[in-house]
């Protein structure tokens, strides 16, 4: 396990029994009395699920863990418990849901890992058009402008349809690029997972920028087409 903080020794708030071997985030319950345990500071989503900090993971396995923990931790299961344990259940279930939401999606999983590893800061996303896409992006923006102008001018239906059609085609082309970027992203996983290669993290960060740029582009076009 990478940087798991193994060896932390804590005691259960209820029975004072020792909690050991895993970071506090993964100590969901006391082995002896079964009470829910506090998170103990910042919870790292990987260690919450007792997973190593790796990008490749089995989605079915993660989902199964999510279900098992939901059954055990959800506030509904502690409605008759004392106030303190209820608050722990709420806190832990919120993190369970946040962690599952973050880790199940490859893009947010990479983003999260990059932040954990200090490669990216919060909310730091470059919104520059990637150089090799400049031409296509320029064309796309032109179409978008034309469509907006035509819409507000209430232009004739045929011209509008034609514009929509062209935009539709460009969107499909960008969607393909988006899929390709996603494949590129996952192709980098092993470099980090197997060798702990930090240079891979920097490459992942760049691919992520490219991905979020194209994703926004596709989203904008979709919005314009559907409105």
């Amino acid at each position: 396990m990478k940087k798991s903080g193994a060896g932390v020794l804590l005691a259960c708030w209820e029975c004072r029994g020792a909690l050991a071997g895993v970071p506090p985030a993964a100590n969901h319950f006391c082995d002896q009395c079964g009470k829910v345990q506090p998170l103990g500071g910042e919870a790292d989503y990987f260690s919450f699920f007792r997973l190593p900090r790796r990008l490749g993971l089995d989605p079915a396995q993660l989902e199964k863990q999510f279900h098992d923990l939901s059954w055990k931790l959800h506030p509904d299961r502690f409605h008759q418990a004392g106030d303190y344990e209820r608050s722990l259940s709420l806190e832990r279930t919120a993190v369970l849901n946040d962690a599952y939401r973050t880790l199940r999606d490859p893009v947010s999983r990479v983003e999260y890992l990059l932040r954990l590893e200090g490669v990216r800061k919060d909310g730091e996303v470059k919104q520059q058009a990637p150089a090799d896409l400049l031409e296509e992006v320029f064309e796309l923006n032109e179409y978008l402008e034309e469509l907006r102008a035509a819409k507000s001018a209430g232009g004739d239906a045929r011209a509008l349809d034609d514009l929509r059609h062209r935009l539709e085609k460009t969107r499909a082309a960008f969607q393909e690029k988006l899929d390709a970027v996603l494949a590129e992203l996952t192709a980098q996983f092993s470099a980090w997972d197997e060798r702990g290669d930090r240079a891979a993290l920097v490459r992942l960060s760049e691919i992520l920028n490219r991905h979020s740029y194209i994703r926004n582009l596709v989203r904008n076009v979709t919005e314009e087409l559907e409105s």
């Binding site: 506030p75 279930t93 919120a94 993190v95 849901n97 946040d98 599952y100 919060d122 909310g123």
Partner: peptide
């Protein structure tokens, strides 16, 4: 607007901001 918890997130859900 900076989104901190997306729609359709399973609840309870949380977000921390500095």
């Amino acid at each position: 607007v900076a989104k901190i918890i997306p729609r359709n997130a399973t609840i309870p859900a949380s977000a921390a901001e500095m």
